Amino acid sequence: MFSILVAAGWPVVPLLLCSVIATALVIERFISLKSSKVLPPQLLGEAIGVSQGSIPSPDVVAKLERNSALGEMLAAGFRAAQAGGPATADDLRAAMESTGRAIAHRLERYLPALATIASAAPLLGLLGTVIGMIEIFGSQAPGAGGGGNPAQLAHGISIALYNTAFGLVVAVPTLIFWRYFRTRVDGYLLHMELAGDRFAEHLSRIRPGAGSAP
């Protein structure tokens, strides 16, 4: 493999850099998009359970906010309900949606970079191949001392095509992971939106002026 990369020449360097960056981003996204960090399955039920009749204490709300992305959104709903005066479901939903937009931006972090690498890698590979072909045919031109050896020409073309192959090797897995993470984020956002609607309806039924739980 190392000999192939050396033979491909300097155009393969940007592709190597893209592969390293893509690998790092994929690992980071796998860690950051764990269900336990974004959408714990029992959290909504627990938040509804501790707020039957009154809003929990600020300490409980702060702990909920640190729990996960969903917890951060539910905490925004608690704070909107604590702000004073009766709050409608639409008011509470709007408060959670504002926090939800910031969460969505955070969940989508680095996905554009993965998409860019998936799109650019084949083009970088093609560029390397074109540069290699130019150098090969230039060396085979009359008076260039290349001798017009067909075997040497074929070998040079095969080396030039390494760049295209390596570009595809980088692009295809990156595209697959980008599509996977994109779908996963969309699923998270849909479930969070549904959870926000349910939580807003729950909070709007809490009696106005209810004090914080001790």
Rank of each mutant, 00 (worst) to 15 (best):
L33R: 05
G156R: 05
A200L: 09
L175N: 12
I48F: 00
P122V: 11
A210F: 02
P58Q: 01
A102K: 13
D90I: 12
L123H: 04
A24L: 14
T129P: 01
S158F: 03
G85K: 08
I103K: 13
V38D: 11
P214G: 08
Y162D: 06
T164Y: 07
S3M: 09
P11Q: 05
A113S: 14
G9D: 07
S35I: 05
A8R: 00
E201S: 08
E108I: 03
S98H: 12
A165Q: 12
V130T: 09
N67F: 02
Q52L: 12
I131D: 02
A75H: 02
G71H: 02
R182S: 14
I131R: 06
I48R: 07
L107A: 09
V38S: 11
D186G: 09
Q42P: 01
G132R: 08
P58R: 02
F177A: 13
G211C: 00
L107Q: 04
Y188S: 07
A200Y: 05
K63A: 15
F177R: 03
L175F: 09
N67D: 12
D186P: 01
L5F: 14
L127P: 06
Y188Q: 03
I103W: 14
P41I: 06
G145Y: 11
L123T: 12
I134S: 04
P112K: 15
Q42I: 05
T23N: 07
T164I: 08
G196T: 12
M192H: 04
I159Y: 01
G147F: 07
G167Y: 03
R109S: 13
Y162R: 01
Y162M: 13
R205Q: 11
E72N: 11
S36R: 07
G45A: 11
F78E: 09
L16N: 04
M96N: 07
D90P: 01
G196K: 11
G209S: 11
I21A: 11
V20Y: 02
S98M: 13
S35L: 08
R109Q: 14
A62T: 06
M96D: 05
L25T: 10
P58S: 01
A62C: 00
S35H: 11
L64M: 15
A160P: 04
I31H: 12
A75S: 10
W178Q: 14
S139K: 15
N163S: 03
M73H: 02
K34L: 15
L124Q: 04
A151V: 15
A102G: 15
P11M: 04
R66G: 14
L161E: 03
T88N: 10
P173G: 01
A89L: 03
L43C: 09
F199T: 10
I103P: 10
H191T: 05
P56I: 02
S139E: 07
V130Q: 04
L70M: 14
T23I: 14
P41V: 09
F199P: 07
R93E: 13
G143I: 08
F166E: 00
D90R: 11
L43E: 14
G143L: 08
G167I: 06
H155R: 14
A144F: 06
T164V: 06
A7R: 03
K34Y: 03
L16P: 06
S19F: 00
P214S: 08
H202G: 10
A115L: 06
Y162L: 13
N67K: 13
G209F: 10
G146C: 01
K63M: 10
F2Y: 14
I136A: 15
D90G: 04
N149P: 05
P40K: 01
A81K: 15
L44Y: 08
V13D: 03
I134F: 09
A118G: 15
A104Y: 05
